[in-house]
């Protein structure tokens, strides 16, 4: 507080104000301005700049430093960006396979469950794994979410049998693709930008994503996207990362401020995402999309053995157990 302020004024007078000040480049890959990521990073900027009295300057890039997550990770590692947002699928590219755990289908039952896990022991352990396996290149400072993913396609899903033979545009990550295959669906890769046309013109039968994402793209207004079944198969996790080596170079005070700003950004992102999820679900309903719920139990049962097997391969069986316990 007060002491810092006088310090700053003093140093400003004799021209040393800049010596301790740092600039932080924060980036996510979403170009649409109406995005929870943007709200989260703007909160980060607000808190960091306010708390530091402008000694920390934060520049937020919405897609301008790269629309590919892989490029953002590369830039974080090289020091060309200081704060970035990444999904588990892209983290595994850096050779840290354990993060894949968070991409398992039906790992979380609800947002409550998810929040409990990422803010608890498992969240901490995962942060440690990321830091250690990346040799301190990456330091996790917060867990964000990109919403809960549901099925949407050319017909509503009443039971798992309805998925038999349907092509579904989904992630290419191993466990996810294995899971959909087991349901009887056919995972298909199609670029996000081409998906609207693909659903419109019968290139794929269905897709899966969270409301804010597919409704913004009008997928719910296509022939093959207007039936939404709330499968809730993935409460998605996103990692808010800073470069650990650079973080260590900051002063203790700066480190505290950054962690505080990260914490505030987490709250802001969650709130923004939860609000958008309701908002875009309502838009989908207003536009005439048909939404149905489904008994998720058979889907969860199908996922369990896959989770067990994949967790064992990744060596995270204990973490998986802890996540399951947290649900009870």
């Amino acid at each position: 507080g007060g002491e810092e302020e006088t310090n700053n004024e003093g140093s400003g007078d004799n021209g040393e104000g800049g010596s301790d000040s740092i600039k932080i480049v924060a980036a996510h890959n979403q170009t649409s301005p109406e995005n929870p990521y943007q709200d989260g990073l703007l909160k980060f900027k607000e808190v960091a700049e306010e708390e530091s009295n402008g000694n920390i300057e934060v520049e937020v890039h919405a897609g301008t430093l790269g629309t590919e997550e892989s490029e953002l990770v590369e830039k974080l590692k090289l020091g060309a960006a200081d704060v970035v947002l990444v999904s588990p699928g892209f983290m595994t590219q850096t050779g840290i396979d354990e993060v894949n755990l968070f991409a398992f289908p039906y790992l979380f039952e609800s947002y409550d469950h998810w929040e409990k896990v990422v803010q608890g022991e498992v969240g901490e352990e995962m942060a440690q794994i990321i830091n250690e396996k990346s040799n301190n290149d990456f330091k996790l400072v917060g867990y964000w979410t990109a919403g809960v993913r549901h099925y949407y396609g050319k017909k509503p899903i009443e039971s798992m049998d309805d998925l038999e033979g349907m092509t579904i545009r989904t992630q290419t990550s191993g466990v996810v693709s294995d899971y959909w295959k087991q349901t009887g669906a056919i995972p298909t890769s199609l670029a996000w930008g081409e998906l609207y046309q693909g659903l419109q013109q019968d290139v794929v039968d269905s897709a899966e994503n969270a409301y804010p994402y597919f409704v913004q793209q009008n997928h719910h207004q296509t022939d093959n996207g207007k039936y939404i079944t709330e499968t809730g198969h993935d409460y998605t996790t996103r990692f808010l990362l800073v470069n650990g080596n650079e973080f260590d170079n900051y002063t203790e005070e700066q480190q505290e401020i950054i962690l505080k700003a990260a914490e505030a950004s987490v709250q802001a992102e969650w709130e923004s995402l939860y609000a958008q999820e309701e908002e875009y679900k309502q838009i989908a309903i207003d536009d005439g999309a048909e939404i149905n719920e489904i008994d998720r139990q058979p889907f969860i049962e199908l996922a369990k053995p896959l989770q067990d097997q994949a967790a064992e391969e990744l060596g995270v069986t204990d973490l998986l157990e802890k996540i399951r316990q947290a649900a009870e």
Partner: peptide
């Protein structure tokens, strides 16, 4: 050197 050990997405 920096990225040698990074994996391909589809074929880790």
């Amino acid at each position: 050197e920096q990225f040698w050990n990074y994996n391909w997405v589809s074929m880790p």
